[in-house]
Design a protein around this nucleic acid. Sequence first.
DNA 1: AAATAATCCTGCGGGC
DNA 2: TGCCCGCAGGATTATT
Length: 279
Amino acid sequence: MPELPEVEVTRQALSPHVTGQIWVGAVIRESRLRHPVPQELASSDPQQVLQVRRRGKYLVLEMSHGALIVHLGMSGTLRYLTQAVPAQRHEHVDLLFADGSLVRYRDPRRFGALLWVPRPPEVSGAPFWQTHPCFSRMGLEPLEAGFDGAWFYRVTRGLKGAIKPLLLEGRLVVGAGNIYACESLFLAGIDPRRAAGRIGLERYHRLAQAVRQVLEQAIQAGGSTLRDFVGALGEGGYFQHQHQVYGRTGQPCARCATPIVQIRQGQRSTWYCPRCQRF
DNA sequence: AAATAATCCTGCGGGC
DNA sequence: TGCCCGCAGGATTATT
């Protein structure tokens, strides 16, 4: 998908255009996403967009009366348009604003989701939408305080599974999908097959730093555009040109020229350098 | 034509 | 023996 960097790039481009807008409803052309698009979006009461937030790979539009949670699946994008133009194929939903502008959701493979969480009556401390089931079991935000090598080392003691699927899973730390999990492990010099519980403190310092660095650089580069991804203003990312291992089967490692290897871990491809990444 | 940026569910097996 | 957790595999889908 859109992994954390692509979602953050979308959020950053979207936020200045939609924060403060009055949301007046939606056009739903295709409701068959991962979950059916709630029909009440179409005829919602006019309400203000207060904030555009991100949690892991989810975007959250905080509104006066609730929160619209957006997941981009494998192939989803959100575009901000100042006025309606005819919708093309796979452009399933428009969020309409009072001034005639709109946010258009496109998702060819329809693995994404739009969810509505009504705002509860009482004021609570943490954002109200965080209690939604899709955020339970979510790990730390890698770009926020608390994610560091010491923490990573501590929470992985006793884990027998390989480190790469653990990164993908998001149970401990969110945001790295297949691209950025592979890239982070390359930067940290760790073999993706190594059991998480057998990696030492020093290497977890390097891994935490690598995850942060890869995600931050990808955000700066506008994300990775493999096929579908564009930001909220239609701009493609160019971090794919900085990929060191992802998708580079047989090509020479940029550091040591050893051919990059592709393996299979839990139904997903993993790419790594067999020389630079130690077991 | 077999691959894929991501989850979610089910069923099985192992361990306690 | 039984239960629970974790992992493996499949399903979802369009495109090249």
